[in-house]
Write a protein that binds this DNA or RNA. Structure first.
Length: 758
DNA sequence: GTTCTAGAAC
DNA sequence: GTTCTAGAAC
């Protein structure tokens, strides 16, 4: 029991008020702490049985706009632990608050047995020291919650906000945030923290919110540094370098007890679990692993001998396509016939036992058997409904209603031979307890006359469908692994530091949709789209390559230009000019006052990636036609300035040159992608493309999607703006000269500059 | 309450 | 490419 010896808050606040009168905001307040001690606010030694109710002090660390208050609000709203938010911006009741007031309030709160969230910037060690000492003197855990978000994001939020408690908003915010970040000093454990959580993007923040939000009075969080960057990027110079989707490397440790955390610490040198059938395997956390049951051999009564052959053959086909990832056939019963058959057949085929092995155990409780599988397969029913017994019932039971809900969002039913991947919400017990991030529902052939779609002993069809089922399953798993590898590669994490930690998983989950979007229509996504097997939308039938690039599989909507290029006579109302080589038309959704497209009419020339030296004549023709139109527009309106160029990765099929005026004054210019596709290096000037193709045989594409999500910067003065409306109001008045590189090599087309008569 | 963004669907 | 819309931000 925490017992107050003596305290008079009023005395403290009186003292604090006096101090405030003579102290600068961030002055040395050590003696306040001493004063507090002399008044003696302390806890009587807390005994072991009460340790669980010990309050904690969480010191937020982050620039204005990093989301400290949002974090506090969320945690206080959802956590059952009593919290007090100590906010310097509000503590002064309208006047500027002081650190001393924050310290005093913290003391009072701890005295009341409440945990404390220190909501102030605390960006350097010195700022944090008093709060650390305070916690130490009261023998409570001091934890740091670092919101190390991109400067650009903090600035954007700060600039935008109105009514901020600390009156830091609008134009001055950017300068303040930048200045503060120059002094940023990430906390270290040796400052006195028992736990440090570093969040570097909004997904990390959400994960941390969940972790702290889940804390009841009795819960504790493991000690250590979570999400630590490999290098301390202390100085964030300027905002230009900060892209919105910065996802810095992280190294996260574990927490087995709190949902929203994950485990790694205990599994560095695992021993084989007794349930493990195959030797030579290592149940390491972090190795992507698919646990799957034998499909169709239980209730669907598929012949076990045939099934085992199909399993091993399909495994053999896939096992080398999934890197270091592992496949594990799981069965609940010891002496399982299917396991022994598969094990024997796998051995005869010399399948690497580290990549494929069998395991006896409950597929929903593998982590507790020291086998961490981030993906599990479910032998589903065609309705994708919970219940029914067997593996399906067990998985839906273990995953909670979250799986049912998430499954419904993905698909309503499943065809035999198909698989559908469902991302498990972090709130699912299977996620939090077992570290399972995805469930792949798979439906095999049914040979049981009492079940739907019985094949009536037609094993020709049955084997075909079962093989297809395993292929779909493994392909879906491979797709997940590929996504994870891409993310790992891009985050530069040390190879041994890629556990399936919660924060990483959340980042991955959040990024999957983005990755899908990036590759939408390409082979990569066609594979992941098989997650949604029933949608029938994956149409990656065209898997050929053109010009060394994966050929894009264009959707219906993206074929409009192609259709016009091939049959301009059917679009007479839309086209402005037709020749044997090109079609000119207004962009249907112009992004500027004048915005034309010059289409190449050659079949098979779908995008810039297809262009080689042999296409130089058509590139020159496109340029010449574009130039002619731009000059005509300039003649009509001398204030217009044009660029001619290509998108590195166009959305529409058929090579097309944009002829676009640089005012970008159009209601069609509506979002960041639009803006950046014409003002970032994603837009390749026609003159440069021609030169590169002539000299190198191809254009250097800049199709990194980071370019399209870059911060919004004026195309003239390069100033940053928080959103499209603000940007548009800026560019409507900005008369700054264009960046120097655009002024060279005729990249910009404009009216002749008249000689100054003076 | 409104504004804005971003993802899903097309 | 757009439209629609949920949800974040304010």
């Amino acid at each position: 029991m925490a017992v107050e010896v003596c305290i008079c808050l009023k005395d403290h606040l009186d003292s604090v008020e006096k101090i405030q009168d003579i102290s600068p905001l961030e002055g040395d307040l050590e003696w306040v702490e001493d004063e507090i001690h002399t008044k003696e606010i302390a806890f009587v030694e807390v005994e072991e049985e009460d340790n669980k109710r010990k309050p904690i002090v969480v010191i937020l660390v982050g620039a204005p706009g990093s989301g400290k208050s949002t974090f506090c609000d969320h945690v206080m709203r959802v956590s059952t632990r009593p919290w007090v938010r100590v906010c310097q911006d509000t503590i002064g009741n309208g006047k500027a608050g002081t650190k001393a007031q924050c310290l005093a309030m913290s003391v009072t709160s701890l005295k009341d047995g409440k945990s404390v969230l220190i909501d102030r910037c605390n960006l350097d060690k010195e700022q944090r020291a008093d709060f650390v000492k305070l916690g130490q003197s009261h023998k409570v855990d001091i934890q740091a919650m670092v919101l190390d978000l991109p400067a650009k994001l903090c600035i954007s939020r700060s600039v935008k906000r109105t009514g901020h408690e600390g009156n830091l908003q609008g134009g001055k915010a950017a300068a303040v945030v930048n200045r503060m970040l120059q002094k940023k000093e990430l906390p270290k454990l040796n400052e006195g923290f028992s736990r440090i959580t570093i969040c570097q993007n909004e997904n990390d923040v959400r994960a941390a919110m969940d972790t702290y939000g889940a804390l009841s009075s009795a819960d504790t969080l493991p000690s250590g540094c979570f999400g630590e960057k490999k290098t301390d990027n202390k100085v964030q110079v300027g905002i230009m370098k900060f892209l919105k989707k910065v996802d810095a490397p992280s190294k996260v440790s574990s927490d087995k007890t709190i949902p929203g955390s994950s485990s790694r610490t205990t599994k560095e040198n695992p021993t084989l679990n007794e349930g493990q059938e195959q030797s030579g395997t290592c149940p390491l956390e972090g190795v992507p692993t698919l646990a799957f049951p034998s499909i169709s051999t239980a209730d669907f009564q598929f012949n076990i001998e045939k099934a085992s052959e199909i399993i091993v053959e399909t495994v053999e086909e896939f096992v080398n396509k999934i890197g270091n990832a592992r496949l594990v056939l799981v069965d609940l019963s010891h002496g399982s016939k299917i396991l022994s058959l598969v094990k024997t057949k796998a051995a005869t085929k010399n399948i690497d036992p580290k990549k494929f092995f069998t395991f006896v155990g409950d597929i929903t409780k593998l982590r507790s058997r020291s086998l961490h599988c981030n993906v599990i397969a479910n032998a589903a029913n065609w309705r994708l409904k919970p219940g029914g017994g067997g593996v399906n019932a067990a998985i839906f039971d273990a995953a909670g209603p979250e799986l049912d809900t998430a499954t419904k969002k993905r698909a309503g039913s499943l065809t035999p031979g198909k698989a559908v991947t469902v991302s498990l919400p972090s709130t699912s017990p299977l996620f939090s307890k077992e570290g399972v991030t995805h469930v792949i529902h798979v439906l095999g052939p049914n040979m049981n006359p009492k079940r739907p779609n019985c094949l009536k002993n037609d094993y020709n069809m049955g084997c075909k469908v079962l093989r297809e089922a395993y292929s779909s399953l493994f392909e879906s798993f491979a797709s997940i692994v590929r996504h994870q590898e891409k993310l790992s590669d891009s985050s530069c994490v040390e190879p041994d530091a890629i556990p399936h930690c919660d924060q990483k998983v959340r980042r991955e989950e959040a990024s999957v949709a983005e990755k899908n979007k990036k590759f939408k229509g390409f082979i990569e996504v066609a594979e992941s789209e098989k997650w949604d097997a029933l949608d029938g939308k994956q149409n990656a039938t065209d898997c050929g390559k053109t010009g060394g690039h994966v050929k894009k599989d264009w959707g219906t909507w993206s074929q409009a230009l192609y259709r016009i290029a091939m049959h301009p006579e059917k679009h007479k109302n839309d086209v402005l000019e037709v020749t044997d080589d090109v079609v000119v038309l207004n962009d249907v959704y112009p992004k500027a006052q004048k915005h034309l497209l010059v289409l190449a009419r050659a079949e098979g020339l779908e995008r810039l990636a297809d262009v080689g030296r042999e296409h130089l004549p058509i590139l020159r023709t496109l340029h010449a036609v574009g130039l002619k139109w731009a000059e005509a527009f300039i003649k009509e309106n001398e204030s217009l300035i044009f660029r001619l160029g290509y998108h590195s990765a166009p959305s529409m099929r058929q090579l097309h040159l944009h002829v676009i005026s640089q005012d970008f004054n159009s209601k069609g210019m509506r979002n960041k992608k639009h803006w950046n596709s014409f003002t970032s290096p994603f837009f390749l000037d026609s003159v440069d493309v021609i030169q590169e193709v002539r000299e190198q045989g191809k254009a250097t594409l800049k199709d990194d999607d980071k370019l399209l999500s870059m911060e919004l910067r004026c195309n003239r003065c390069r100033s940053a703006h928080p959103n499209i409306p603000r940007l548009k109001s800026h560019i409507s008045i900005c008369k700054a000269p264009f960046p120097a590189h655009l002024l060279q090599n005729n990249r910009l087309l404009h009216a002749p500059i008249k000689d100054d008569p003076c």
